[in-house]
């Protein structure tokens, strides 16, 4: 059964792409058509296909299963961190380097204006084509990424700036050089620094929340997830490899792991699920960004009411309450 499951978002969305393509062609034709009758005929056809497409989008997206969410969350068409920074912020200046000899490209960040607030904004950055993906190391941060984040968190505290982080990574980089430079310590120190902050912090999971690699910059006052984002202790394929020694059973593992935004919210592990436009954030990045902006603003306004110490204690208590056991 698992072998019949689509392996990529492209594969899964193919029928939709075909409809989009034929619409594109028809619209081109209609534009060039001089005969009025024929143009009207084409127009009618366009309207019909558009309706068919919208019905199909609704059908595809209104009831996504966990595995389909995994595919959507990983879709290369999805808006990435830099897209959101561009859409939500002004005066962004990217800051870089861990000041210890290394530079990470999978975590980007800097200073910016969010509305009328100066903020520290950062997040995982993936690439869209082969070159970009390699340059961004597939969004897998090395220790220097977390150390850069820690520098920025320090500045946030010093200059009383709220922190906004975007989460979108399959995992932390698992390579030898990352181990040699202390990837585990990097992740842990990132979280530790976030817990020390007395300024508000908001994390938004915009794609893949990949285990520790995500959490290293996601120990925030508020954690929000987009409707089709995922957040998991382990990639479903890795889970299947451990459980059944069969990575191809990822779709089953995705179901078992309850990695959707809806499950995370039900389990009280995140604060809000942000709705996406029909067909996912990539179909309408502008309105997706507006939803994200409004949510961040709302939560920052709420957190503004707290004293610095209460901001820190509020964050502590929120994570402190996580865990389900019998006592």
């Amino acid at each position: 059964m698992s072998s019949e499951q689509p392996k990529s978002h492209n594969e899964w969305e193919r029928p939709l792409r075909e409809l989009d393509d034929s619409l594109h062609k028809l619209k081109d034709l209609a534009k060039k058509e001089v005969d009025e009758d024929k143009r009207e005929e084409l127009q009618a056809k366009i309207v019909e296909i558009e309706e068919r497409r919208d019905r199909y989008i609704h059908l595809l997206y209104s009831n996504l299963g966990p595995w389909e969410k995994v595919l959507v969350a990983r879709a290369e068409k999805r808006p990435y961190t830099l897209d959101y920074i561009q859409a939500l912020c002004n005066n962004f200046v990217e800051l870089d380097g861990d000041r210890r000899g290394f530079r990470d490209k999978a975590i980007v960040g800097g200073t910016a204006m969010f509305g009328n607030r100066p903020v520290i904004v950062l997040g995982h950055q993936k690439g869209r084509n082969i070159q970009e993906r390699q340059f961004r190391n597939f969004g897998m941060a090395k220790p220097e990424g977390y150390r850069k984040a820690i520098r920025l968190f320090d500045m946030a505290e010093r200059f009383r700036m709220p922190v906004i982080t975007f989460i979108d990574t399959p995992a932390a980089d698992p390579g030898v050089e990352s181990e040699a430079r202390g990837i585990s310590e990097g992740i842990a120190a990132g979280m530790l620094k976030m817990f020390e902050l007395t300024v508000p912090s908001i994390s938004v999971v915009i794609g893949e929340g990949g285990s520790g690699g995500a959490l290293g910059i996601a120990a925030a006052s508020r954690v929000l997830m987009q409707e089709h984002a995922i957040y998991s202790v382990i990639p479903p394929e890795g889970c299947a490899a451990i459980l059944w020694r069969m990575p191809e059973r990822g779709p089953e593992a995705a179901r078992a792991l309850k990695l959707t935004a809806q499950s995370a919210f039900e389990l009280k592990l995140i604060d809000e699920v942000l709705p996406e436009p029909e067909g996912g954030a990539h179909r309408d990045p502008v309105s997706a960004a507006i939803t994200v902006r409004e949510a961040i603003t709302k939560h920052l306004n709420e957190l503004d009411q707290l004293s610095p110490i209460d901001i820190r204690e509020n964050r502590y208590n929120k994570f402190r309450s996580m865990g389900i056991f019998e006592a």
Partner: peptide, 19 residues
């Protein structure tokens, strides 16, 4: 793994206690 995201959040909870 069997406790999914709840167990991931134990990483955050324990680290918070270190702070």
């Amino acid at each position: 793994m069997q406790e999914g995201l709840i167990s991931l959040m134990q990483m955050a909870k324990t680290t918070a206690a270190v702070s």
